[in-house]
Amino acid sequence: MSEPLNVFFLCSVQHKEIRKAGESEIRVMTKSCTVDLVTKTDERVEKIIIGSLKEEFGEGTHCFIGEESVAKGEACVLTDKPTWIIDPVDGTTNFVHGFPFVAVSIGFAVNKELEFGVVYSCLEDKMYKAQKGKGAFCNDEPIQVSDVQDIKKSIIISEHGVDRSPEKVTKIFSTMQKILCIPVHGLRGSGTAATNMCLVACGAVEAFFEIGIHCWDIAAGAVIVKEAGGLLLDVNGGPFDLMSRRMVSANSDTIAQRIIKEIEIFPVVRDDALVQKK
């Protein structure tokens, strides 16, 4: 497939929808729990993106996995067919609170292999993009991961997710404590997985890890990290699995493996095993 310039344009114009909603009253609902938020903006932006892609490529020719569509009961299954994986507003909680990291994330896969990804950090006005074998870019400038190999000179980024069960929260913060005490230069979290992965790709941080993320959070970012020279692994050190909801992305295997030593793993339901209530 040729470079999807129409997708880059589509991704960037959505910031107008997000900015407009941010300046007016925001209608907020919850999905899985009181801290898993969705707004009318999420739903509207996803509808615009999917509608535009269907118009561009033809009805029925491509498949779609969208965060809000899955929340409403659509299947979350990655097949060999050309598939768009979409998070219309990554960082909805940030958006609701006015915290300035909100992104549109669009990934594309064929034969279950990710081919390209676009992440538009709306409020920063930064367009990250990558296509398999063609490098990674931010606002058309090439980007690459950090060359730091000493974990003690690194910044690591992670999130605490939306599950507030005491057992999982304990494991999450125990992992963060152990990594902080290696010691590393710092731990950070932007509140959006797509942005976190782009921070790895452009060398601002050395690694991002999380258990509990979804495929739409990281599909685009996965391509961008790899094309910037980074790597992706499972939190147990095995191969990266887009649907597993667990991932380490890093500038190098050295940094990734050191982090993996400290991660306290807890179970999550795979994206392709989720059964949503209609």
Rank of each mutant, 00 (worst) to 15 (best):
V275L: 08
E17A: 00
V110F: 05
K40I: 10
I213G: 09
F209I: 06
F108P: 15
V70H: 10
K20V: 09
E159F: 12
I151Y: 03
G229C: 09
K16Y: 13
A207D: 04
N111H: 12
D87A: 02
K81A: 15
R258H: 14
V169E: 09
S12M: 14
S32R: 00
D147K: 08
Y128R: 10
R27G: 00
I85L: 10
G221W: 00
I263S: 10
V118Q: 10
V275D: 06
G191C: 08
F240R: 04
M29V: 10
N251K: 00
A222N: 05
I255V: 13
E227R: 03
V38R: 00
T83A: 15
V223W: 11
T254Q: 06
F95P: 06
L242S: 13
L114F: 10
T254N: 09
R270H: 08
L114P: 13
F173W: 04
L187K: 02
I182K: 10
L180Y: 13
E264T: 14
I224W: 04
C122N: 10
K31G: 00
I86R: 06
I48C: 02
Q144I: 04
V96H: 04
H160L: 01
G230W: 04
S2R: 11
I179F: 15
A250D: 01
S165C: 00
I211C: 05
I218M: 12
L78N: 11
M127G: 05
T195D: 11
F99R: 08
I255W: 01
H214P: 13
R27P: 00
I260Q: 10
E68N: 04
N94F: 02
K171P: 02
L114H: 10
C202R: 06
K40N: 12
G212C: 11
G98H: 07
L123I: 14
N6Q: 13
V119E: 03
E55I: 03
R246Q: 13
E56R: 15
M127I: 03
G117P: 09
I172G: 01
R245D: 09
C198V: 13
F64P: 15
E46G: 08
G98P: 11
A273I: 01
L231D: 07
F137E: 01
T79N: 14
V148Y: 08
V77N: 09
V96W: 03
V145E: 05
V110E: 07
A136W: 03
